[in-house]
Every structure is written in C-alpha cells, then in structure tokens.
C-alpha cells in the first residue's frame, strides 16, 4: 500500500432510478489534504458520497474512481472499506441487538485483516480512550448500534468509528447537520487530530460553519451534478457572505439542482 493515499475521481456519472444525478465529476484527493464540497440542496452532493461507498441504490453509469491506482468501482462495499475508504453517513442505520462495541471490534478486525486482530482487552481500552476524546458516555459501548441515538449522538458515533478505523480516505456527509456548537467543536477537533499525510478528507456540507473549525485546503462548489468552481478556503467565506446567486449568475446557471433533494 502506498504510504500517501491518492484518490482520483474521473468523469463520474451516477444515476438513481434511471435519472442521472452526478454528471461528469472530476476530483483528486491526496493524503494530507482536506477538500470541502459545498453547494445548495439537490445538487448531487450526497449522491456522490453514497455512490463512492457503493450504496446499492446508486448506479455508476460511467467514469472511474481509483484509490492508489486500484479501481474502487470494481470493489464491493466491504472491500472499499478494507481498502481504506470511510463514509460518515448522514443517516446511519440502526441495528437492534448488535452492540456498538461488538460492531466496532468486528469492523476494526476486518480492516486489520485475518491473523492481525486486536486482542479484546486492547480493543476495549482503545475504544474507551477514543470515546473519551469524543466526549461519548462509556455506556454507549454496550448500547445497540445507533438504536435510539439522537441525531447528534449518531454523528459522534460515526466520527468515533472513523477515528478507530483510521481510514485513508474519509468522506464526511453533512456531519455538521443536527450538531450543536459544542458537539461540532468536538467533532472538528477529532477530525483535526486525525489530519496527517496518511489520510485525505472529503467534507460535504451546506454551511461554512463547519469549515471555521476544520480548515479546508480546497473548496469545491457543486451544481447540476458537477463541480462548477474550485478554490481555497476563501471561496467558502465568499459563499457564506454572498450566497450562491453571484456564482450562478457568473456561470449562467438558472436552476442549480438536478431535480432531487440532496
């Protein structure tokens, strides 16, 4: 495995129920970089995130996605994860009867590979330490996976998994929605502490708010299923101050959506 991850999306097209939502998207993320994708509702941001992870409802109709030169699109969902991809989901599933701790241990051991499993005691020590960092009550370890969690608790649980699994490419899909300012700071802190040349981030958000705490290297604006403008963090500030209309005007876009809710 290459030491610095290299993730490349080329001319990606994704359809949902026959309707094309992502329409020719290009993006390269290297280890050590934080990319933010912003954009109004319905422009294909979440579709992009889910299709990169391989969700069954999304059809990649053309294009390529590679991680360290390996085709991600040829991998099953679990293979993508084991190759180092991680998606912090907007609406993670609830699974009754499966404890958070058991789930995370299975996931971590799957990621580490057979013969390299973490001993149970070491795992629990690691889990408790990570939970403390994220200010998560230790009882959540034995609670059923996401069951009865509040929106904010689910988000923190996603970040907890990310910090345990140490992915090479982490995609955060609207991780800031439903978080109060204190929780947002904790989540941002956790992301910042993971920042290193070994990991590249793709952060999808509506609001510039999150980017005040996680400083992006690159900001992209998505409209009509593709990236229409890229820049540095000043682009996010510009959008925060002026909204999207000036950009639409500049680009001659009347309707920025692709006809679905993000």
């Amino acid at each position: 495995m290459a030491s610095v991850p290299h993730f490349q999306i080329q001319d990606l097209h994704v359809a949902v129920e026959g309707k094309e939502i992502v329409r020719g998207l290009n993006l390269t993320i290297n280890g050590g970089e934080v990319h933010a994708i912003m954009g109004p509702n319905g422009t294909g941001k979440s579709t992009l995130a889910s299709s990169l992870m391989g969700h069954h409802a999304y059809d990649v109709t053309s294009g390529s996605v590679t991680l360290d030169g390996q085709s991600v699109l040829d991998m099953s969902v679990d293979e993508r994860a084991r190759a180092g991809m991680f998606l912090a989901m907007q609406y993670p599933a609830e699974v009754a009867g499966v404890s958070n701790a058991n789930f995370m241990r299975q996931a971590l051991n799957a990621r580490r590979g057979e013969g390299n499993e973490l001993p149970v005691i070491k795992f629990h020590r690691l889990l408790q330490e990570k939970m403390k960092q994220l200010n998560i009550d230790p009882v959540f370890a034995e609670r059923y996976l996401n069951e009865g969690f509040s929106g904010g608790e689910k988000k923190r649980n996603e970040i907890l998994q990310m910090s345990l699994l140490e992915p090479r490419i982490a995609i955060l899909d609207e991780i800031d929605s439903g978080l109060d300012i204190d929780a947002l700071k904790i989540v941002a802190q956790s992301v910042n502490s993971l920042r290193s040349p070994d990991i590249g981030f793709l952060i999808i958000t509506h609001y510039q708010r999150l980017l005040e705490y996680i400083e992006p290297d690159y900001v992209h604006v998505m409209m009509q299923g593709r990236i229409v403008r890229s820049g540095g963090k000043e682009l996010a500030e510009q959008l925060e101050a002026k909204g999207y209309d000036w950009l639409k005007e500049e680009l001659g876009i009347v309707d920025e959506t692709v006809g679905v809710e993000a």
Partner: peptide, 28 residues
C-alpha cells in the same frame, strides 16, 4: 434490511458476516 447490511459492510465487514450479525442481533 438492505441498509443495515450496507452500513455494516461500509465498515469493512463482509456481507455474510454482516448478515449473521444482524440475524444474531435479532435473535439474541
């Protein structure tokens, strides 16, 4: 539930193991 299977797989757990975990969760 396909979304439950997807969620467990998205963390690296193979499909068969994910299905077993969900069934066990249900039976436990």
């Amino acid at each position: 539930d396909a979304d439950q299977i997807y969620y467990l797989m998205s963390r690296g757990i193979p499909k068969d193991a994910a299905m077993r975990m969900i069934i066990w969760g249900y039976l436990q």
